[in-house]
Structures are given as C-alpha cells and as structure tokens.
Design a protein around this nucleic acid. Structure first.
Lengths: 348, 348
DNA sequence: TATCAAAACCGAAACGTTTCGGTTTTAGAA
DNA sequence: TTCTAAAACCGAAACGTTTCGGTTTTGATA
C-alpha cells in the first residue's frame, strides 16, 4: 500500500543507498535531490519509523513514569517536557503508577519492552530497582523531583528544604510561634526534605520543634483533611499551618471550610503549588510555588543531551537544583499582638 | 547483545517457526515448550516489539490528542484510559495541542508518522481535517467529548445539554429568575450544547432568555474571571451564575473572591467538574460532575474492540452518551436536593 | 504392524530501513 | 586533454520478527 524507499529508488532510477543518504543528511547531487523530492510528493512517501527503529535500535520514544497523572504538579511538568521532546521528534509515553511501587516497577518493565530510548521518572519506590536494569542497558534515566539513594543518574530537583524554611520563617517573622505542618510520607525524598526545612527554620528562630505540631500526611487530599483536623484538635494554641503539597493543601482548605474557621483571623495558612487554585481560594492563599516549567525544560534538555540530539552531555551524572518562590496571598495574618520586631522578608 | 529468536532456536535445536509459534499461541509439544521456556530464562530473551511491529504493521501504541494536559477533566479521562490500554499491552502517546487547531493537526501528523494503531481525540478543530486522512488508512479514530460534523466515527459524549438544563432548572426551582451563564466558545461542540441546555430550561420554566445574562467565555481561567466581572457589572438583578467548565469555574471563584461577594447570600453559583475543588471552595460549590471514569472506560473499550483485541466492534460508528450528575454544595441559596449525596461523597 | 489424518515442525522469504565496501562520476589542476 | 582526489553513488547484507508451503512426526485405528 504505502510507498517505500524501494519505490522511490525505482521511480527516480537511483540506488537505495542514495535515497537513504538523502533522508539522513548525506550528500546528494542537486538534480537528484529534486528528483527524489518529486518522487516523494508523487508517491506520498513517508519514512517508516518502525523499520528504521529496527535497524538503528532507537524508537525515538521516551517513557515517563509518574506517581499520578491527576496532579497538576506532574501534568505541568509533563506538558512542558512533551512539548520540547515532540518538537525534536520524540514521542512521550506517560505511565501513571498510582503512587504504587509495584505498579511503578511494572510500568518500567513495560517501557523497557516497548524499547523506549530513555526514561524520566518521578520515583515512588525509594529503591528504584526497575531503573537499575534499564540503566545498565546503557539507556539514559533522569530522576525528576526525587532522588534515589545509590542510583547515580541525572536528577532535576527542587530545593524543598529551603522552600519550607522560607515559608516557616515568614510565619515566624509575622509573630507566629506555634506553626503546624502537614508533612508527607517519611520515605518520600521531597517530604523529608521539606520537614528538614521546617526544622531548620525553628533552629534559626531559636524555637524548639514540638512533635504535636507535626502531622504525618500522605500527600493526598483525604490525608490533608484528616491531618488538618487532627492538628487543630491536638493544638489549641496553633496559629498557623503549612501544607507541604498541593493535594494536602486542597485537603487543608476543605477542612478549614467544613470547620468554619476564619482565615487568616483564626489561623494563618501557607499552601503548596498551583497558583490558580491559591488565587481561587477565599481568601487567596499564600503558597510555595515550584518552578515546573524550568523543571520541564531542564529535564528535557538533559534527556536530549544524553541521547546525543543536542547539547553536550557531561560524563558524570548531573544534578540540577531549582529554586521555589513564595507567593503571597491573604492567608497569613500580619504581625500578631505581642510579636517582636518583624523581620524583612523579601517583598511579600 | 540481546538474545533473539534465532538464539532460542539454536539453543533449543528447534526451528525459528516453532519458536514464533510458541509466542503466538500456536501448538508446541510439551517437552519443546519446556525447552523454550528454559532457553528464554537462560538467555534472558525478550521479544523485540519493534521487529514484530515491522512485520505485523502494528505498533501496539495508540495516540491521544487533547486540548490541554493541564486540565483535570482531560487527565482524569486519560488516567483511566491509559490504565486499561496498558493492561492490554498498548502504550499511550499523549499529545497536548494547547487548544490550537494547527498544533492539533501537527500532533495528528506526528502520531501518523509514529504509526500508532489508533487515535483518540478530544478535537479542537471543528473540521477535523487531520483525522480524515488517518481514518482513511483504515485505522480507528474515537472522538472524545466533542463531535465533528460530517466525520462519522465512534464518539463518547456527555449529555451536556441536559446537564446545564438540570443546573438551570434547579436554580429556577430555588426561585431564581435572573440566571447568568459563562458560556464557552460557540464553535466548540460542548459549549453550544451547554448553552442549548440553558435555553431549554428557560423554555420549560416559561422565562425568556436575556442576552445580557449570557457571557461568551473561552474556557480559560482568565476568561472566567473577566466573564464573571462583566456579568456582574451588566446585570444588577442577577442572583445566580452557572460556569460551564472547570477553568471558568475557577475564574468565577477568583472574581467572586476579589470582588468580596458573599456566596450564596448575594449570589448563587453552580460550577463544573472537579469535585475536590468544589469541596475546597468556601462555601462548598454546587457543581455539574462529569462521568470521567466511565468516559475513559467506554473509550478504551471501544478502541480495543476496533483493534480486534476484545469485545465486538459494531459495523457502523457507535455513539455513547453518558449522563452527568448534579452535586450539591452550599453555593445555592435555599435547600438543595441531593444533600445526602453530598454527605456520601463528603465522607473523607 | 501398517495406515493415515492431524499435529508439529521446518527453512526461506518477506517487512522497510541503514550501512558497509566498493565502484563510478565529477570537477579542478596540470 | 589527462590525471586525480573527493564526492556521489550503488547493491547486498543485515536488523528480528512473522508467515507461507511443504515436510516430518505422532498416535489412534485397522
């Protein structure tokens, strides 16, 4: 049915190798180039990427494994990456592993069978067992947002520790002393980093961390709701709360709404991610905003470099650290009565 | 490097055809089956899907083209589809076309070059020009959420007309008489259907439609904000507003927050999609909820049937119509039916 | 034990590319 | 015009499958 290079060769009277050379940037005489292009037009020829893939052992496809597709943080990054990769001829196969390490492993095996040229992973399994195998085959792996102990490959990370430190420091500066935090699962890299930032801020402010103000959430909306409720129940003196990812931020807002708590009069809040959501909250929520577009760009560039498409790939693994921004809303109360002198906190 | 079927043949002393037959469900004698499986184990053999694809002319890959990845309605559906398709061995390549018909066309061409076995499309271009070509090649196309005039292929739709009719009727029943609507772009199928539902409800209630209460939005957050503001400015007597997609619902909430309007005392609201967002709003928003999971399931099943993987494919094009649900919050003045449903969902 | 259909097996030829050596053509210098 | 290095070109052999005819083996029956 569809025309092949053989047809082009016959039609133009040229050899198969010449046709191939034409498509692969080799040297072809002007008049032959014209002949070939004419033939392509007439026969509606289109190169068969599958056949090419068989020969070159490259599929021009890259796999992306993430914990949840239904998560703006993930989709914002994927949108950006997909855009860049597609413009370079690479297709993106996205696998949602439902935050389940076993499914993640399966997804990686699936992608390996599909012979993707590289994998980008926001890992759920802290061991990263599936990736090692893939990586051993000499194919590039890039970790997104979370590190894996003992797997040295390229990483694109966010300075989560500093991010939460900044958020908590802002609250201290506003006079808060009992700041709750809805933290994430201990075993997840970002969650533990964020909790460290919370501790850092306390240290810097010279205020001891109280265990009862730390609530171990699970990065879900439901977890955010129950986490918020238990924080409030356990800590009558608490005047502010930080939620450490988007889902739990939504959960926190749900809880606050259902309990009828007035923000920021009764409680100050700082959330995470999704500026649009923050602005739609009542009152507008102050949040830590992650640089999703830059993450996408860095990740895609790193991948393209590793694939030898463009840019230089460094010999060793590369780690990119990106910074977050604290975006002010109306959910943090001004200096509380009795607060010490306020510190200058970057133009918020 | 990697073992091939030839290696298996040599290792087992069997013929190539027998090995192939083993993998394709043909008859193989017990003792040979064991021999083959042992060889697979020893040589770590894995079938090369690319080579197989060249021979069978099938890539076991399906393309999905959507207007925005960064859109819960889309991602919820994709999550469900990807799950089902992957479990049947099909990879999903998602292309985000940024709500741009030209980019959509490009995405479809890209997928055609990648030789996907089928395309699922939530179309932006009402002409669907790119799809016709693909469809003519005998490969299945399934339209999601929106119809294309004159392209008769399988569709999975939602009864949008009835959905908005129900929403408006509810408002009428609560005594509202001046109901604003933030509508979508006229050329988009769902938008025009939703507007029809709005008109239907007026007809049924015997109340004439007022042009000034209809605001033509563009399905974006920004459009929702400005649409809401202009509606309020133009209609002092308006007591309720319906936003007709998720983004504009968010926009509507932003506007309401920034203008300091009290809900539902000064204005009643009904939004669209994303139950979680609705519950996080203050007060909880009443919304029209679309059956994204069913849409995903129907679409994937339809595709698998067309691909001959499972289920029966009907000869003619199939159109699935699914129903929405109206989920009550606290954003509509007066008592709202369906309160017990909200409780059930609210059992977080 | 001989017979015979069915079951199991086999090798070779595709599928549509790229690539490897080797041959021809080109065009500038002598 | 002749010579020569470089530039273009060429066909055949892969890449790892599936499939097509045709051959062998099997085991139930006579």
């Amino acid at each position: 049915m569809a025309a092949t290079m053989k047809d082009l060769a016959r039609h133009t009277g040229l050899g198969l190798a010449t046709i191939s050379s034409y498509f692969n940037g080799g040297n072809v005489r002007e008049k032959n180039r014209i002949k070939i292009e004419q033939a392509i037009e007439e026969l509606h020829y289109e190169v068969n990427e599958v056949a090419r893939g068989l020969k070159t052992n490259a599929t021009h496809t890259i796999g992306v494994v993430i914990p949840e597709l239904n998560n703006t943080f993930c989709t914002e990054i994927i949108t950006g990456m997909e855009d860049i990769l597609r413009s370079r001829g690479y297709a993106t196969i996205v696998c949602d592993c439902r935050t389940d390490a076993a499914l993640e492993q399966e997804a990686i095996e699936f992608l390996t069978r599909k012979r993707v040229d590289g994998i980008i992973n926001m890992p759920v399994d802290p061991a990263g067992s599936g990736l090692r195998e893939f990586s051993k085959a000499g194919k590039p792996v890039i970790l997104l947002d979370r590190r894996i102990q003992g797997l040295d490959c390229d990483c694109v990370l966010v300075d989560n520790r500093r991010a939460v430190n900044e958020a908590a420091s802002l609250l201290f500066a506003q006079g808060h002393r009992n700041i709750g935090i809805i933290s994430g699962p201990r075993e997840i890299y970002t969650a533990s980093e964020r909790l460290k930032g919370y501790a850092d801020a306390h240290k810097e402010a010279g205020i001891p961390v109280q265990e009862s103000l730390i609530c171990q959430g699970d990065y879900t909306i439901r977890g955010g709701v129950s986490g918020m409720i238990s924080l409030i129940r356990r800590n009558p003196h608490m005047t502010a709360v930080i939620a450490t990812n988007y889902e739990m931020t939504v959960g926190m807002m749900i809880a606050v709404n259902e309990l009828g708590i007035r923000i920021p009069d009764e409680l100050s809040l700082i959330g995470f991610d999704n500026l649009e959501f923050a602005r739609a909250c009542c009152p507008a929520l102050s949040i830590v905003s992650q640089p999703t577009m830059e993450m996408a760009k860095e990740t895609a560039s790193l991948m393209l470099a590793r694939l030898g498409v463009e840019g230089e790939a460094s010999s060793g693994p590369e780690v990119k650290y990106l910074r977050t921004r604290l975006i002010g809303g109306r959910s943090v109360s001004g200096p509380l009565p009795g607060a010490e002198e306020r510190k200058a906190v970057g133009g918020l």
